[in-house]
């Protein structure tokens, strides 16, 4: 490790790499950035390996497990019948909860950016709430989406959004029928044949997703843009910018909460270009996961 003109030069030249990493984390990372490489051997604009498994929770109506590098998110959807509000008689509802249990990270900080997850997926127009309607004014679906962070290793929002989108594309809406009292009952498999009432939603078992949003978080540090940061990178260089684009490349969210580095227009353009690439990658991963699911 060759140090630059700094107080620690003499020390660092004879120090072990691991010790150097802990004692001078910023210089350790900047030394890597000079060589356009990151400590985990990625190039600056490259995201970590991403995998997606649908149907991870058997008891849920739709679920997915998303992994971006070590960051792991589990999303599951439970459908319930509810009475829609008077203001929107033919719309369903989506309730989103994000959980960060102590298992995911040594420091669980409540109120992380991922709390913004509900805001994004609601406004993105991914889900047409009218599709969740059963009987106008009488009954509609309430989708409870729960996202659990199992391992928090940076870029939480990206993983959470990917898991949520995958869970919605996996979602199988249960078959329900109207009974004699005009109430909605779930048709279970055993008595499916003998139920005399016709199911209400026989053909509407899948949600039509309009355009799916995908997120990419980048770190801005000096002149560098680091895509998909790990938790270590996030803690050392703390200007984060999260860009959410949907499949038609519309901007769903551009979220930058402060930070010492300022985002200039040219930087924003570069970040958006990186996100466009990432959207294509993630879309491919999601499509493959759906295909795998259909084969099984």
């Amino acid at each position: 490790m060759v140090g630059s003109a700094n107080g620690a030069t003499d020390l660092s030249s004879e120090m072990e790499v691991d010790a150097f990493r802990r004692l001078f984390p910023l210089r350790f990372h900047e030394r890597h950035l000079l060589e356009s490489v990151r400590p985990d051997a990625r190039s600056l604009g490259k995201a970590r390996e991403t995998s997606l498994a649908l149907g991870a929770v058997a008891s849920a109506d739709g679920s997915a497990l998303a992994k971006i590098g070590c960051t792991t998110m589990l999303a599951a959807i439970k459908m319930e019948v509810m009475t829609p509000s008077k203001e929107a008689p033919d719309e369903g509802c989506v309730a989103i909860d994000f959980h960060m249990p102590p298992i995911c990270s040594p420091i669980v900080r409540p109120g992380r950016p991922a709390e913004a997850a509900p805001v994004v997926s609601k406004h993105s127009g991914m889900i047409d709430l009218k599709e969740l309607s059963l009987v106008s004014g009488k009954a509609a679906w309430m989708a409870y989406l729960d996202i659990y962070c199992l391992d928090a290793d940076g870029a939480l929002f990206d993983a959470a959004l990917l898991a949520a989108a995958a869970a919605f594309s996996h979602l199988q809406i249960p078959v329900v029928s109207l009974n004699d009292d005009g109430r909605i009952v779930v048709v279970s498999k055993e008595n499916g044949e003998k139920a005399k009432n016709k199911p209400v939603n026989e053909e509407k078992r899948k949600l039509k997703l309009r355009s799916i949003p995908f997120a990419l978080t980048c770190i801005l540090h000096k002149n560098y843009i680091l895509a998909d940061p790990t938790a270590e990178e996030e803690s050392i260089m703390d200007t984060l910018i999260t860009i959410v684009l949907d499949t038609s490349c519309q901007l769903v969210s551009l979220y930058k909460p402060g930070g010492p580095a300022l985002a200039y227009e040219s930087v924003l353009q570069d970040c958006i270009a990186l996100s466009r690439q990432r959207v294509k990658e993630l879309q491919k991963i999601l499509n493959e996961a759906i295909l795998d699911m259909d084969v099984d």
């Binding site: 519309q250 901007l251 769903v252 300022l262 040219s266």
Partner: peptide
């Protein structure tokens, strides 16, 4: 780049095109 052209914080709600944002 002029410093006051840099964005300190940006929060968006709803879908827009990239050009609209700029």
């Amino acid at each position: 780049e002029i410093m006051e052209h840099g964005i300190l914080t940006s929060v968006t709600h709803g879908v827009m095109t990239v050009d609209d944002y700029f």
